[in-house]
């Protein structure tokens, strides 16, 4: 039982550090998660600086180089490292710019969802009686409709488009978010130290800001990573279904569906955006998983 370990040197030294430093130590020990974090940071930099880094413009056409394979192929050209598409656009530049749309917008979406979700979730968690019961049943109904389907319905209302996709995904992710935050708040509310604060005469705001929030924000970060990976997948899936970003926007899902007709002639135009998409989601999941297990390990000490 590690819980009752008071006297070993390592754990006492460990306990002297701040919770956040302890968390970082556990996270650092997990090398795979660290690689995920580096990948995540690299993608974030790519998303913010895309137009500067990309060698060519997004829609710049090179009529002398149509459907060129990547440069390591025999007929490839070193000017276009990852080849070109059917309109002679450099695939590397398009993919780099796509980071802004798919990854950057997904981060934005997840951040807005976090803001709304935390406010509403805390409200749901703190309310009692009929109000909370009605809210929960409403959540139940929306939870039973899958997020992508919900997003598709909202897009059917608003019409296709990249910005509408963002709204749709925010609305579709919210119920799940509210539900998770509500559970965290309810769990924390039932603990003794909160009851002690109530008895000391603290008001709701005080309990929330001093008692509950410092104890749940790390878990909120974990929920954030989960909704971020869903957001990336949903934005690209909607782009792929031609309901989200419309060509010539360089969103990864849209690039993929645009090049679908050339799957036989130019398989790299389909494979490459998918690989990037895969790495974006993988890095997010790695960070989220690493954080979760680090939280669990810190609790076990």
């Amino acid at each position: 039982m590690a819980k009752f370990n008071f006297n070993t040197d390592i754990s006492s030294e460990e306990l002297n550090k701040s919770p956040l430093r302890q968390l970082w130590r556990h996270f650092k020990a997990n090398h795979v998660a660290l690689v995920g974090l580096w990948l995540f940071i690299a993608l974030t930099i790519l998303a913010t600086l895309a137009p500067v880094i990309a060698p060519y413009g997004v829609n710049q056409q090179h009529t002398d180089a149509l459907l060129l394979p990547p440069s390591w192929d025999d007929v490839g050209d070193v000017r276009f490292i990852l080849g070109t598409d059917d309109l002679g656009r450099d695939i590397l530049s398009r993919l780099i710019n796509g980071t802004t749309y798919t990854f950057g917008l997904a981060i934005l979406t997840a951040l807005i969802t976090t803001l709304l979700g935390v406010v509403l979730g805390v409200f749901a968690g703190m309310s009692k009686g009929v109000r909370s019961s009605i809210l929960n049943h409403m959540l139940d109904v929306t939870l039973s409709i899958p997020s992508l389907l919900l997003a598709i319905i909202i897009i059917a209302l608003l019409g296709p488009g990249l910005l509408n996709t963002v709204w749709a995904i925010i609305l579709a992710l919210l119920p799940q978010y509210i539900h998770s935050v509500r559970n965290l708040v309810v769990q924390e509310l039932s603990k003794d130290y909160i009851v002690a604060q109530w008895l000391d005469g603290a008001n709701s705001w005080h309990i929330l800001s001093r008692g509950i929030f410092p104890n749940i924000y790390e878990h909120i970060v974990v929920i954030f990573t989960m909704s971020l990976s869903t957001a990336i997948l949903d934005i690209s899936a909607l782009g792929f279904l031609k309901l989200g970003a419309q060509p010539p926007t360089a969103e990864w899902g849209a690039i993929l569906s645009e090049n679908l007709a050339f799957i036989y002639l130019a398989p790299w135009t389909v494979a490459l955006p998918g690989i990037l998409l895969f790495f974006a989601v993988l890095s997010t999941n790695l960070v989220g998983d690493g954080l979760r297990s680090a939280l669990k390990k810190r609790k076990a000490i």
Binding site: S229, G274, N285
Partner: peptide, 18 residues
């Protein structure tokens, strides 16, 4: 599982088809 979680379903389908 982690790899499976991170693969977009439409890309997996296209890879399979390819």
């Amino acid at each position: 599982t982690l790899l499976g979680y991170s693969t977009p379903v439409f890309w997996l389908a296209l890879l399979m088809i390819m």
